[in-house]
Every structure is written in structure tokens, then in C-alpha cells.
């Protein structure tokens, strides 16, 4: 039996400090974001500078991470690729957030048949593999980064809607929401101005957890050739392009972007899970 601590007593304890793993992940993400922002300053070469004479060079002073089969500098490409690879998931999550939060809040607020319809819809979408859905849309509208982001945005909407619905349901039971209704405020205004803002922390925490997954999905699409189209590039496309070099014995062109993906995804998951735990323990 451990000694309980008194309520409302004492300074913040060690539990509030971030564990070492989270600190490392935080640091990694800061470095990655800075690298993406400062790519033009940091990259030694233009990302699309082709130098066939330097094809598949290993690490060395000229090319810190070597080159790919077209002689493009891998470090430069990974730095520039970070821009697409980080911005695209943010865009797709923004789409999913706007649609998902709206649907989820609507379902939680109206209840009844609205809730039934939204819940059934999200369940069906849930059961349907997101990537398959995306590929179907791309099959209709054609490949490309824009289509991929839009399609994945739609594919992530049910997840966000389901989560929003559950947190909105418990939040709307709180008397302060009742109080707005008793004041004579309309439902739409209560939801938009007071209910959803109070869910903000939970929803943003959830989106952070989704970020790593979204990045993976986009990289997968690019790898499959549905996403980024040459000459523009992201890490997924780089892995795909680098694959051919593996046969020729050069591992770096596939490994460098692959490692970048893994680093960002793992870091986001570590931070996201920690944030979700903390939010959870606060409720």
C-alpha cells in the first residue's frame, strides 16, 4: 500500500517532467522541422541537380550521404523531401479535422437519427481499409499529391469523427453546457463557440498521434506511385526510386529516406502516446 498524497498539496512532483524518451523525441522533431524549414540553407546541392558522373557515390566529403542513380545528392533530397513529407500530413489532417470534428460534434449534439446515420457511416468507413479507399479515389481522379492528400483526408475523417463524438458526448453532459442552453443560446453557437473549443486539447492530442500514421500512409502512396510525382519528390517516392539501386549494391538511396520516415513516425508516436496518456489521466 503506497502512501496517498494529500489533495491540493505540494509543488508539482517529478511525475510532471517529461521522460527521457519523450525529450529525445521532442528534440528529434524540432531538428527535423528546422531542417525542413532551412533546407535551402543547409542543402549542399539543389535537390534536382543531376550529375550522372557521380551516380551512386557512397558517403564521402563531396556527398555526406552519397548520391542516387541519377547522381542527385541524397542529403539535399532528404532535406527538401522533408518539406513535402511534413506539410502534406498536416494538410490532410486539417481536412480530416474540419470534417471529422463537424460530423462528430453533430452526432454527439443532435443524437437520435443524426447520430445513428453518422455512426453507421463512420463504422462502414472504419471497416473499409483506408488505403484501399484512397487508391479507389486515385483510380478515379488520377494520381498526384493533391489527390492523395484529399483522399487520405477523407479516409481519416471517420477516425476523427468517432473520437470527437466520444469526447463531445462526455463534455456535453457537463452542466456548463446545459447552462448555455438555459441562457437561451442556440445549439450551433454553443457547439462552435464553447463545446468544440473545450475539446481542443483532446482533439489536438489525438491528431498528433495520427500524424505519424498519416505520414506513413502518404509515403506508402508515393512509394506505390500514387502520390508525389517526379520531378517533385517526397521520402516515399525516394525509397521507391532507391530500391532499384539496392540491386546494384547501393543501400543508401533507399535507407536514407526510409530512416527519415522511421525517425519521424517513431518520434511522433512517442510524443503522441505520452500526450494522450497525460490528457487521459487528467480527466
Amino acid at each position: 500500500m503506497s502512501a496517498p498524497t494529500l489533495d491540493r498539496v505540494g509543488p508539482k512532483t517529478g511525475k510532471d517532467r517529461r521522460p527521457a524518451g519523450v525529450m529525445i523525441a521532442d528534440g528529434t522533431l524540432v531538428v527535423v522541422v528546422l531542417a525542413a524549414l532551412l533546407a535551402p540553407l543547409l542543402a549542399p546541392y539543389a535537390p534536382d541537380a543531376i550529375d550522372l558522373s557521380a551516380s551512386l557515390v557512397g558517403t564521402g566529403p563531396e556527398h555526406l550521404l552519397g548520391t542516387d542513380s541519377s547522381g542527385q545528392d541524397l542529403l539535399s533530397r532528404v532535406l527538401y523531401g522533408a518539406r513535402t513529407s511534413l506539410v502534406a500530413p498536416i494538410l490532410l489532417l486539417a481536412i480530416a479535422a474540419v470534417l471529422g470534428v463537424t460530423l462528430g460534434t453533430l452526432a454527439a449534439w443532435r443524437g437520435g437519427w443524426v447520430d445513428t446515420v453518422v455512426s453507421r457511416l463512420t463504422d462502414v468507413m472504419y471497416a473499409f481499409p483506408g488505403l484501399l479507399f484512397t487508391v479507389l479515389i486515385i483510380a478515379v481522379f488520377g494520381a498526384g499529391m493533391t489527390t492523395s492528400v484529399l483522399a487520405l483526408g477523407l479516409a481519416y475523417t471517420p477516425t476523427v469523427a468517432k473520437y470527437t463524438r466520444s469526447v463531445a458526448l462526455s463534455e456535453r453532459r457537463k452542466p456548463y453546457i446545459d447552462a448555455y442552453g438555459v441562457q437561451g443560446m442556440g445549439g450551433a453557437r454553443i457547439c462552435a463557440r464553447y463545446l468544440v473549443p473545450n475539446l481542443g486539447r483532446s482533439i489536438i492530442g489525438y491528431l498528433v498521434v495520427l500524424f505519424g500514421e498519416a505520414l506513413m500512409s502518404l509515403a506508402t502512396l508515393s512509394y506505390l506511385g500514387f502520390g508525389a510525382q517526379p520531378p517533385s519528390s517526397d521520402w516515399g517516392l525516394m525509397v521507391q526510386e532507391g530500391q532499384a539501386a539496392v540491386v546494384q549494391g547501393a543501400l543508401l538511396p533507399a535507407l536514407v529516406p526510409g530512416f527519415a520516415i522511421a525517425l519521424v513516425v517513431v518520434s511522433f508516436n512517442v510524443v503522441g502516446v505520452w500526450a494522450a496518456d497525460r490528457l487521459g489521466s487528467r480527466r
Binding site: 452542466p175 456548463y176 448555455y180 464553447y194
Partner: peptide, 11 residues
Amino acid sequence: FQDPYVSLDPR
């Protein structure tokens, strides 16, 4: 309402 801890908007 009864419980003043949850009847006010925390924001």
C-alpha cells in the same frame, strides 16, 4: 446547478 466545479465554462 449543484456542482460549481463543472457548471462554469473552464475557458
